[in-house]
Amino acid sequence: MRFRDRAGRLQDGYSRQCPSCEVVLFFAEDSLHPFIKRAMRNARKVRKELREAEMARLLVPDAPAAPSRSFEGRRRTAGRSE
């Protein structure tokens, strides 16, 4: 059975109980099990991508704010007078 967990949690020394068979799985960097190795490698990759995206977001200045749409359609038309 496959189950998902957050990449931030899946670090060396993390353990989790399987929801179907209730066996406790231990995640270690030096594990010999290929599925554990793959999960640890994928979690490292995701954490790295998240850090890079966060750094890019911090380094790039915010884009100018779009005008508010709250008054869209309430403007006075050119031919109308009061």
Rank of each mutant, 00 (worst) to 15 (best):
R6V: 11
E72H: 07
A66K: 15
R57G: 03
C21I: 05
K48N: 09
G79A: 08
D12M: 05
E49G: 03
A28R: 15
P67I: 07
M1K: 12
R6P: 04
R38W: 07
S68E: 08
S81Y: 10
G8A: 10
K48T: 07
A53G: 04
V24C: 04
N42P: 00
G79V: 04
E54M: 02
A7D: 11
R38H: 12
R6M: 07
G73F: 06
A43I: 00
R69W: 00
R38E: 15
D12R: 03
S70K: 13
S31Q: 03
L59Q: 13
E22T: 03
R69K: 13
S68N: 04
R76N: 07
S70I: 12
A7T: 05
R4S: 14
M1E: 13
R38L: 15
R75V: 05
P34V: 07
D30P: 00
E82H: 08
R44A: 14
R2S: 12
G73E: 06
P34N: 03
E29C: 02
C18K: 08
P67Y: 05
G13P: 07
V46N: 03
K37L: 12
T77Y: 08
A56F: 04
E22F: 08
S81L: 09
R6T: 12
R75D: 12
H33D: 15
R69A: 13
E52W: 00
S31L: 01
G8P: 03
R16T: 11
A43Q: 07
A53M: 01
M40N: 08
K45N: 14
M55V: 11
S81N: 11
K48Q: 14
K45S: 13
A56H: 03
R41V: 10
H33F: 06
A66F: 04
E49W: 02
S81M: 10
Q11M: 07
R16S: 14
R38K: 15
A53Y: 00
R16F: 05
K45G: 09
R9E: 13
G13W: 09
